[in-house]
């Protein structure tokens, strides 16, 4: 075992000196990897996801050119994204031209639920991926969001962590949080909640049956995103939907 960092010298993962390593490890007297032509080190500041970012930038300028506001909806699976979208499309029908891109690992169930509400809907099956990326969105934009569309809803794959790492070129992110998930999800998952300037609290009709505390939840949200704008809705009963729809109408103006 290596006395410096405690690893066994093999190919393995470990943390020492403030770094994470994957090594074929050489310590002390062991020779470094053989260099045939000599090594040199290049210092950089290059984003790992720069290709995704380039696609996102293209999407953003396409959306701007076409006058489309795009919101990237992110939440846990089962927090009510699709039902909220169903009621939202119904409420905005004839008032704001909307379109939807929806992502799931498998099935086009969501797209089928959202059909027939006056908005073009496209489904992306991500298969093994836990998030949508900007290239997938870019391929669909001309097809789904031309023709005077003002508001594009991108329903991301249900997941609180991965989707927030990939910029899709959206105008901004909206996080959904259902009352059944508890008040402290924002503090547990700050990666998403710190970058979502708008949060919709869903399933508000269930509050009488839960030990859910609105003030505690709002406080958790403000801890990770001080200026967050919060909506409380029940897509099922219609509670709070009017305020939500008014906000979206103003957004699309």
């Amino acid at each position: 075992m290596c006395k410096e960092c405690g690893c066994d010298g093999g190919e393995q993962l470990h943390f020492h000196d403030g770094h994470w390593h994957s090594h074929k490890h050489s310590h002390g007297a062991e020779p470094p990897a053989p260099a045939e032509g000599g090594a040199r080190t290049v210092a950089l500041q290059q984003k790992i996801l720069s290709r995704n970012d380039e696609h996102a930038a293209r999407n953003r300028s396409w959306l701007k050119e076409h006058g489309v506001v795009a919101v990237n909806l992110i939440s846990s699976p089962g927090s009510g994204k699709t039902l909220l979208l169903e009621r939202t499309l119904e409420g905005l029908r004839g008032r704001v031209p909307c379109a939807v891109i929806t992502g799931d690992q498998h099935t086009d169930n969501d797209a089928r639920r959202l059909q027939g509400k006056g908005a073009p809907v496209r489904q992306i099956e991500t298969l093994n991926a836990c998030h949508l990326d900007a290239e997938q969105i870019g391929r669909l934009l001309p097809d789904v969001a031309s023709d005077g569309i003002r508001l594009l809803f991108i329903e991301n794959v249900g997941n609180l962590v991965c989707p927030s790492a990939f910029d899709l070129g959206e105008s901004f992110k909206i996080a959904l949080l259902s009352t059944t998930e508890g008040e402290d999800k924002p503090v547990k998952y700050p990666t998403l909640f710190s970058v979502a300037p708008v949060v919709v609290l869903t399933k508000m009709d269930l509050v009488p049956h839960l030990d859910w505390n609105a003030a505690a939840c709002r406080s958790c949200l403000r801890q990770v995103c001080p200026g967050v704008y919060i909506f409380e809705v029940s897509a099922k009963t219609g509670l709070g939907m009017e305020t939500w729809l008014d906000y979206l109408i103003k957004l699309a103006e």
Partner: peptide, 10 residues
């Protein structure tokens, strides 16, 4: 989420 340096061989 950045690459900060890379050691290259020729």
């Amino acid at each position: 989420l950045n690459i900060t340096s890379i050691e290259l061989f020729e």
